[in-house]
Design a protein around this nucleic acid. Structure first.
Lengths: 205, 205
DNA sequence: GAAGAAGGTGACCCGGCGGTCATCTTCTTC
DNA sequence: GAAGAAGATGACCGCCGGGTCACCTTCTTC
């Protein structure tokens, strides 16, 4: 996709409206939100949407990349302002899980294959790096067990919200319960040896 | 649906073939497996499927109820043959998670609203009861924290597999890693207070 | 303000899927 | 073995949703 600067003024406006409408639609209805509805919400025709994003997949990827970078910035902020340790990890997990809970499409999008979507792959790589640093710092304080990685933390965040997803309307905070249990599973001490290595990257064929 | 005994012999045969084909199709392709393919696999026409199960939903419910009752029997067996404690709970979680990992439709089906599907509601109720007993026994030994319930255990089982689901083909055992972390979260001792009460029943509008 | 390029439009196409029904076949019963 | 009830069939329907394209509109540039 062309850089924004090369776009005509009306095209740029439409592109932004589309991204905004898509973000809202995906959050509310999940990744299945029809492109037609997104275009209508943005005040443009379907053809316009497909001019900016040749496939629905591209649109999803654009929004997901943005979300992931937001998370990265949050990690940087926590790293700067909080003391390293389990609390810092828990704070990040809580914020990330809240984002996942507020956006039905986030999990689905995050776990999809991102092959060929460079922007998205870069965002994911940056996230994993930031998470590993946060977790590593916490491990050095002795507050987090040694055998978990940044990706594990991401997986647990997703696990806590995703399982509650169908119940979110009734119990919008339910994920906090399971996140707390999972944070307790990160403590060192009396632990079960982990039987399988963690994934190396968060992507899936 | 009529009791089997009242069915004509050919109808009974077809019904069984349909259930078998559906179980396999749902396990392999998830709940989205088209009814057409199920009918073909069972060697009957689509109309026949809809005679036995008026909606796809009914077919899913029938299979799910069967799966849930299998889990119940497993719990009974563990209760009889193993000593109560965290190990017993972990064994059940492992078996349940393995079932979930082997059947892409299990989670989706389990979290759907079951309103009006009496057979299914009964099976779910029985499962929750059995889980509460298993967990309660373990708590009495002091090996499991006091603030979790049977439903929590079910949720964690689902959380472990569901989050790995997109990666299952690459890493079919990955769920074991997260299940182990979650089991460690069930230990008493240094725990975070759980911020939200557990659900009372596993069903969702 | 003319001209052409960039962008916008929406009717249309297509494939997939759940579900229906008039019609034909098979089982059961006496 | 006749009759009728129960069951099976598969063409058909309607809906949905992603994606296309020939044609029209708007912006930019000189």
């Amino acid at each position: 996709m062309k850089p924004d600067a090369e776009l005509r003024s009306d095209a740029l406006r439409n592109r932004r409206a589309l991204l905004e409408a898509a973000a809202e639609a995906f959050a509310r209805h999940g990744i299945e939100a029809p492109v037609e509805a997104i275009a209508r919400q943005a005040g443009v025709a379907k053809g316009t949407l497909f001019r900016h994003f040749p496939t629905k997949r591209d649109l999803v990827a654009a929004i997901l990349a943005d979300r992931i970078l937001t998370l990265c910035e949050l990690i940087d902020e926590i790293t700067r302002e909080r003391e390293a340790g389990l609390e810092a990890v828990a704070e990040l997990m809580s914020a990330g899980a809240a984002m996942l809970a507020a956006d039905r499409s986030f999990f689905d999008a995050a776990m999809r294959d991102a092959e060929g979507e460079d922007e998205l792959l870069a965002a994911k790589a940056r996230l994993v790096q930031a998470l590993d640093r946060l977790v590593g710092d916490a491990q050095r304080t002795g507050e987090v067990r040694e055998d978990v990685s940044g990706i594990d933390v991401a997986m647990l965040m997703m696990a806590a919200t995703n399982t509650c997803a169908p119940a979110l309307e009734r119990e919008p905070q339910l994920w906090r319960r399971y996140l707390a249990l999972m944070v307790d599973g990160l403590r060192p001490g009396d632990t079960t040896p982990l039987p399988v290595p963690a994934l190396v990257e968060v992507s899936v064929s």
